[in-house]
Amino acid sequence: MQGFPFQPEQASTVAQSVDHLYLFLTALTVFFSTVIFATIFYFMIKYRRRSPGERPRAIEGSLPLEILWTAIPTLIVAVIFIWSSSLYVRNAEPPKGAMELFVTGKQWMWKVQHPEGQREINELHVPLGRPVKLTMTSEDVIHDFFVPAFRVKKDVLPGRYTSMWFEPTKLGTFHLFCAQYCGAFHAGMIGSVIVMEPDEYERWLAGSVPGESPEAAGEKLFLQQGCGTCHIADGSGPGPSLLGVFGNPVKLTTGESVPADDAYMRESILAPRAKIVAGFVPIMPSFQGQLTEEQIGNLIAYLRVLGKSQPPQPKEEGKK
């Protein structure tokens, strides 16, 4: 670190816009504190007590002044609110075509799985200039994935998925902190994000242990766990076929339709009776406690592949 910095490096596409708002708020803080403190000092000196018996004239108050100093802060906070909320909304959605990584938080380490199957612990290698979307979950308590240089942060929760994204704009190694207290070595749950030139990243991918891709690992699990026994591809089994399911709406016995996304798939594996697909009976056992978060992530990656295939055309379709 050079000299004595007052702001962390700006290394993502959103960092600068967050810093602009931050600077505006800082300027506002300095301005209002100065005005208030200067006024107080001025009054205290100008109207200091000169003789013990002084009885200044009473002043009731002033409605116009009250309206004025209610309206000014209201206007100012309205500006901040609109500015910050629109920035937040703009930063909430990852751009299309983002590279998708799977992150698992665990006391006290970060595990990352790349789409090509590479795994790393407490390190995250990403290419420069490409949006990266993280789907995150925790195997135990709540953690929080925080990269100050990117100005991004999101809690990592057990039992559900959260996601965040960033697009690095600077080469280098940046801090990755856990920002939600998670137990004894919370302070040690830190790692680094390493931003590389895209071709260098390709070389890193090729050079590191390739490992299994999440989809391949998921396919293996699908077989091992016997999922295919019931979820027969042609729709003839006691469970619904999983072809063409992921990413599309699913009709439930309750009549409502829910999108088959990560969270839905996860719930269907761990708590299968929460939402029953129309036309089926709740007979699937729960896999709670039998799969690690990474395995569930892999299974879902495989289900995502299956979701791209054409669904079977069973007889029910004819009823419609």
Binding site: S17, V18, L21, Y22, L25, L28, T29, F32, S33, I36, F37, I40, V77, I80, F81, W83, S84, S85, L87, Y88, N91, D144, F146, P148, R151, V152, K153, A179, Q180
Partner: peptide, 27 residues
């Protein structure tokens, strides 16, 4: 009190504001 409360109140704006809170939350 007024001095410190004013500073505390104004810095609260940084945390009420969504985009900056994402960075500052938990720090």
């Amino acid at each position: 009190f007024i001095g410190l409360f004013t500073m505390g109140g104004l810095t609260g704006l940084f945390l009420a504001s969504l985009a900056t809170d994402v960075h500052l939350n938990g720090t």
